[in-house]
């Protein structure tokens, strides 16, 4: 599962731009993850603050 650490996220939208399945949405100050997420982990690499993690 992809988890978003809301206490770390600075709502910059970087992760949204790289998600190949368009599963992320930046709603002002929080990231929503849709059911289309394939847990590929691409978004976790781009996050400048390390707020995203794919957890087993």
């Amino acid at each position: 599962m992809l988890t978003v650490n809301r206490y770390k996220c600075c709502y910059c939208g970087a992760c949204v731009g790289v998600c190949p399945t368009c599963s992320l949405e930046l709603v002002e100050t929080f990231i929503e993850v849709s059911a289309d997420c394939k847990e590929c982990g691409i978004c976790t690499k781009i996050c400048p603050v390390g707020a995203l993690e794919v957890k087993a």
Partner: peptide, 26 residues
């Protein structure tokens, strides 16, 4: 709608950025 743009993707234009084509900044 900026780096997180969806409008293109909604209209069928694939604007998804490959990791080699985006700079992540702090």
């Amino acid at each position: 709608d900026g780096v997180e743009s969806k409008v293109g993707r909604w209209a069928g234009i694939d604007t998804t950025l490959k990791l080699k084509d985006i700079e992540t900044c702090a």
